[in-house]
């Protein structure tokens, strides 16, 4: 069973006569264990593809299915719940919540869960990313690499099946970038699927499959 299945996804922005085609009949399948990287220049549609696959951006045409669930057949709130349970996001800017501690940032997606259990899960996740000493620190006090690892831990706290990463190593040094890529590869090896978009060829080295994208189309 594919974790992610995109079929002929088309997305346009702007009015019809002057619209810009951001995704042009993109089809993609990610089975369990897949680590797929999509490489392309800025503005080629990588982030649009990621948001569409992440149930955040409704395509104009085509279908997006995750774990046999058609994403855009669901209501907004159903999609939010599905996203929380199934999909993890990692961004280039990390986007940690500044007033929450490292542990609180990681456990933020666990609003419904038991507080004690959630805390234990968060601590375990932080230990996995070598952040056990920083659990009570605020994100502003961490290094760039540490912050990205916190973001990665937050993306994985709900044990998602699909991890969507948008330039996750863009702000990192070589060592931290390697740590992040290793974590993504491990996630795929453990049965998840990773879709990584980047313009950096080096970041694609750990991926099983690398695809090129240009002007909204996969080449």
């Amino acid at each position: 069973m594919d974790i992610l299945c995109l079929k002929k996804i088309t997305k346009r922005f702007g009015k019809e006569d002057q619209s810009l085609v951001a995704l042009d009949e993109v089809s993609l399948q990610l089975p369990s264990g897949a680590f797929t990287a999509i490489r392309g220049p800025s503005g080629c549609g990588k982030t649009t593809l990621l948001l569409t696959a992440g149930s955040l951006l409704r395509p104009d045409d085509g279908s997006a299915v995750v774990l046999d669930q058609s994403l855009y057949a669901m209501s907004i709130e159903q999609r939010a719940a599905f996203r929380a349970a199934t999909i993890g996001f990692v961004f280039q800017q990390f986007h940690l919540i500044p007033y929450l501690s490292v542990l609180e940032n990681v456990t933020a997606p666990l609003l419904k869960d038991n507080r004690k259990a959630g805390r234990a899960r968060g601590q375990a996740m932080l230990e996995r990313f070598n952040l056990a000493d920083h659990i009570n620190k605020l994100p502003g006090t961490l290094s760039t690499g540490e912050r990205q690892r916190v973001a990665l831990a937050r993306a994985m706290i709900n044990s998602p099946k699909l991890l969507l990463a948008d330039e996750p190593t863009g702000n990192l040094d070589v060592e931290n970038a390697a740590t992040v890529l290793t974590a993504l590869a491990d996630f795929a090896r453990e049965g998840g699927a990773v879709l990584l978009v980047t313009h950096d060829a080096k970041a694609t080295e750990r991926a099983d499959t690398v695809m090129e994208m240009n002007r909204g189309a996969l080449l």
Binding site: E77, A80, F91, P109
Partner: peptide
């Protein structure tokens, strides 16, 4: 935006 991406509902 981040919280919505993480699955926070509108409520």
């Amino acid at each position: 935006g981040i919280l919505r991406a993480l699955g926070f509902s509108a409520i």
